[in-house]
Amino acid sequence: MSARDRILGRIRAAQGKAPVASPQERAVVASYIGARAPGPCPSLDWDPAVRFRERVLALSSTYEDVGAIEDAPRAVAHYLRGQALPLTAVCWPELSSLPWQEAGLVVETRAARGDDLVGITGAYCAIAETGTLMLLSGPHTPAAASLLPETHIAIMRADRLVGTMEDAWRLLRAESGAPPRAVNFVSGPSRTADIEQTLTLGAHGPYRVHVVLVR
């Protein structure tokens, strides 16, 4: 008998169940999972775009709108100059065709390295309730680009704004069925308060997160 069978056997014995699950038990579990019923949400009596911006700022990120996706590189360059940050970045393959060079930026489309200072990514969607970006891993959307650089710039379309995490899961299921290898929810710059409960930004991940919303 394997450790697996012994553990599962102990669970069933402890709960006074027969050694093998009955069809009814299986049906109860299958129907609960199948229903994917959302739990209670708090009142969502806000405008998603207003709420998202408010929460993003509350999480110590910065935020700006642009009118079209082609305007994003100029906005990014403006932000980097304003922060006195380098105009060189690693970027998701998904965004490589934007006019970066014209905006005065040197953008490389490759896997992020430990010494990259700026990472530019998109976002699968964003959650207004908490101001959270949802990033999916994939060949064109590598996870490290939003993690290793000291500055993370996320460009996302306003029509990808959803209300809650429940909505985000629903969108993911509708569009791609199962989650990819990594789903990362990002809510602001990395932080720690381990030493004397004092909040410090930039623990292991980015010190800065800048959100560019394309209207």
Partner: peptide, 16 residues
């Protein structure tokens, strides 16, 4: 700050 949901190993063509 980060909620990370991981499912399975690296897919084909993924760089990380």
């Amino acid at each position: 700050n980060y909620i990370s949901v991981t499912t399975g190993a690296r897919g084909r063509d993924e760089t990380d």
